[in-house]
Simulated assay, not measured.
Amino acid sequence: MRFLPLLAALVLSAGAATAKAPCGGSFNSFVDGLKKEAISKGHSKSTVDKFFASARFDQKTINADRAQGVFQMPFLDFSQRLISQNRIDNGRRKSKQYDAVFRQIERQYGVSRGVLLAFWAFETDYGAFQGNFNTLNSLVTLSHDCRRPDLFRPQVFAALELYERGDFSPTKTTGAWAGEIGMVQMLPADIIENGVDGDGDGEVNLKTSAPDALMSGAQMLSHLGWRKNEPWLQEVDVPQNLDWAKSGLDHQMNARDWAKQGVKPRYGNLPNLPASLLLPQGRKGPAFLAYPNYRVYFEWNKSFVYVTTAAYFATRLEGAPRYDAGNPDPALSGNQMKQLQKKLKARGHDVGKVDGILGKLTRAAVQKEQIRLGLPADAWPTTALLNKL
């Protein structure tokens, strides 16, 4: 199953406006407003007219934007759905095929190859499925839509800049429904800021050149704060008598201090780095130490389940064993999760949107209520917690 349209929506853009962007109303009038703004930014009227001449509203883009149910899946289900032996085998073949490129990336950016291979796999199946949505139509449609215009409106003008450079076609450039382009799916503004000519042909082509895409992805991670040559995620075994209230991304201590608490790595050694104990499905499921680079993933994608799956898959591609799935308590259904979020909001917790997705804010609120109610505070919501609330 192809996940590209579902994953793309949560990618962050560099340069999103802070003020609420104009949206809605007549689509043609909205496009006229974009054209006027483009001219006010210094683009010539003739160029602007040519760029927007083919812009059309795309209902398929809106439909894809609203279809985000996959993120309601718990980590084990989500990761097993995305990670297959075929993707692991293909990743290892790509690692050998582009070994020289990965070695250059590792020297220059300190980004381990597994990290980029995992993004490459999940975003486009190593370039095989890059999306067939007209990029301009998607960006203009999502800018017109009032759900997240601040994110997408700046991307329209970035695409215009790429058009002026000869690197974008209003009628032919295609990609994901949310406007990302190429093998690792980058938005136009990110291409401008982080695009790298990895193959030395004088162009940055993220759709057909794997070296360009990989080098650009590494540059983007570096720009987002990736710490050179440091780990990002490591599976661990945890003692059953651990203070679970210390788990979660809001809590951190040195990995070696975690060792003093009885936390043991399932492979490798524990580094001298700050780490959070991550329990994606509670104390009875798999456990990981998340290092500072893990948090950079959230600058690429906001979904907790996607980030954790991508980070874990990166370790698998570099030889880590399959996780110990354990025997976690059953996950709440989507409707139960929404009920939980409403109850948490009623108690004054910030859980963001009531969407049935167990994200960072909901996890933090769950843990606080578990502490209050005297339950194991592992941030994994259960029917027992729901009933007590």
Rank of each mutant, 00 (worst) to 15 (best):
A8W: 00
A9I: 10
V11C: 11
A16L: 04
A17I: 09
T18Y: 00
T18C: 02
A19F: 12
P22L: 11
S26A: 14
K36W: 00
S40M: 04
S40K: 14
K41F: 11
G42N: 08
V48R: 09
K50M: 05
D58C: 07
N63H: 09
A64S: 15
A64T: 12
A67Y: 07
Q68H: 13
V70T: 09
V70N: 03
Q72D: 04
M73F: 10
P74M: 10
L76S: 12
F78G: 02
F78K: 02
F78M: 05
Q80V: 00
D89H: 09
N90G: 01
G91L: 07
R93C: 00
R93S: 13
Q97S: 11
D99H: 12
A100Y: 06
F102R: 06
G114V: 11
G114F: 09
G114T: 07
A118H: 06
W120K: 04
T124R: 08
T124K: 09
D125V: 07
F129K: 10
N132E: 15
T135G: 09
N137S: 11
S138V: 08
V140G: 08
V140R: 05
D145M: 02
D145G: 03
C146P: 11
L151K: 15
L151E: 04
V156T: 12
A158H: 10
E161I: 00
R165P: 02
D167T: 02
F168K: 08
S169Y: 07
K172I: 01
A176N: 05
W177D: 00
A178N: 12
E180R: 02
Q185I: 08
A189I: 03
I191V: 15
I191P: 06
I192T: 03
N194K: 02
N194Q: 12
V196I: 15
D199W: 10
D201G: 07
D201R: 08
G202M: 10
A210E: 11
R227F: 01
N229S: 15
W232M: 05
E235D: 11
A245Q: 13
A245N: 13
K246D: 13
G248R: 05
G248L: 04
L249P: 00
M253Q: 15
A259E: 15
K260I: 03
G262H: 06
V263C: 08
K264L: 13
Y267L: 04
N269P: 00
P274C: 01
A275E: 12
L279W: 07
Y297K: 03
W300R: 13
K302N: 12
F304S: 08
F304Q: 02
V305A: 01
V307P: 02
Y312R: 06
Y312G: 01
Y312M: 12
T315C: 11
R316P: 03
L317C: 12
E318K: 02
D324N: 14
A325S: 14
P328N: 06
A331V: 03
L332N: 01
G334Y: 06
N335P: 00
M337N: 02
K343I: 01
H349S: 06
K353G: 00
V354I: 15
K360I: 13
K360C: 00
L361N: 13
T362Y: 01
R363G: 09
A364V: 04
A365D: 04
Q367M: 12
L373N: 04
L373T: 07
A377G: 10
T382Q: 05
